[in-house]
């Protein structure tokens, strides 16, 4: 070792360290034609084993096959999706780091946890949606959207279970947007699972869920689905009237969207969107999702951009009302 002068040694080390970078620079243009060539890292900013995680993994497997590159699902939790989403936003925009999330990206941005906001990411495609529903215990007198809107306006002050600043909080706020003097008690309980526990135990009066979260409890007769906030009735709950039918035209869903960092080349976004479109067209996948009360709802390109911009505006105005 001592035979090599320090200066030369430093230069050598620098050369060795720089080698991979140089290689990447050289092969950069070549990669543009052959994408993807390496494994793709799909960041899921939600807990392992939860609904979004399972959904992401269900989609990732066939999509990886179409792309001819493996997709590694990585759960990066914390900050109401802010940590995982910002990690992706800061990654190289080369199409090898992607994000799979839903409205939580918008709510955490509107609440100020995610400082970089949704504009730090480019949407690739929306894949599917879940319908938002409100539910009560089976012994509750509340049976229709009308009953719910009466209860929030009178002096009964119902307890609504929320996870502050998260999707279910915003869902309630969206429902209440056009009720001038609503009087409710937002009790912090947590997301879908804890909300259901609190509802069953009588610690809240009304909870808001996605259809898949209430299905089993409804079937068992423990809780009643009051109304769904969608244009049409949900196929999994055909007997439950929509709010629109009752004269409250409000639509709220949980929409699964995949994103890439901003400035990811458009041809790579297109490659990914093509692969996802193939996945979502597959009958087996569609059946698997429908069985879980997840409705395929594919969107890409300009239509997706416009929809997301509209949602972002709604979420921001709702956030302004509570901040």
């Amino acid at each position: 070792m001592t035979l090599i002068p320090t200066k030369t040694r430093r230069a050598m080390i620098r050369a060795i360290l720089a080698a991979p970078l140089g290689l990447a620079a050289l092969t950069g243009p070549a990669l543009a034609q052959a994408y993807p060539e390496e494994p793709i890292r799909l960041v899921v900013p939600h807990g392992a084993g939860g609904g979004t995680d399972v959904f992401s993994r269900l989609i990732a497997a066939p999509t990886a096959e179409t792309l001819g590159a493996s997709i590694a699902v990585v759960n990066v939790t914390g900050g109401g999706t802010a940590i995982g989403a910002q990690e992706v936003a800061r990654s190289d925009p080369d199409g090898y780091t992607l994000l799979s999330t839903h409205v939580a990206l918008l709510t955490s941005s509107a609440m100020g946890a995610n400082q970089m906001g949704p504009d730090s990411l480019t949407p690739i495609a929306q894949l599917a949606s879940e319908t938002q529903v409100i539910a009560v215990r089976a012994d509750s007198p509340m049976a229709s959207a009308g009953d719910f809107f009466d209860a929030v306006a009178d002096d009964s002050r119902p307890k609504l279970g929320i996870s502050a600043g998260a999707g279910n909080h915003f869902a309630f706020l969206q429902m209440l947007m056009n009720v001038p003097d609503y009087d409710v008690n937002f009790v912090p309980v947590g997301g879908g699972g804890p909300s259901m526990t609190a509802l069953l135990g009588g610690n809240i009066d009304v909870g808001t869920f996605t259809v898949s979260e209430v299905l089993d409890q409804v079937a068992a007769g423990e809780v009643r689905a009051v109304t769904v906030f969608a244009a049409e009735r949900d196929p999994a709950l055909p007997d439950v009237a929509t709010a629109t039918e009752a004269g409250f035209p409000i639509e709220i869903g949980l929409d699964y969207v995949w994103y890439a960092p901003k400035d990811t080349p458009t041809d790579r976004i297109a490659t990914l969107a093509d692969a996802l479109e193939t996945t979502m067209a597959d009958e087996t996948i569609r059946t698997t999702l429908t069985e879980r009360a997840i409705l395929p709802n594919f969107l890409r390109g300009d239509a997706l951009e416009a929809t997301l911009a509209e949602r972002w505006e709604t979420i921001q105005s709702v956030a302004a009302s509570i901040r």
Partner: peptide
């Protein structure tokens, strides 16, 4: 430190976003 569990606002994170998870 982390997100306040009731108001969902960053708390004691000193503007450092990796602290959002506490």
């Amino acid at each position: 430190p982390g997100l306040d569990p009731v108001t969902a606002q960053p708390r004691l994170t000193f503007g450092f976003d990796r602290m959002l998870g506490g």
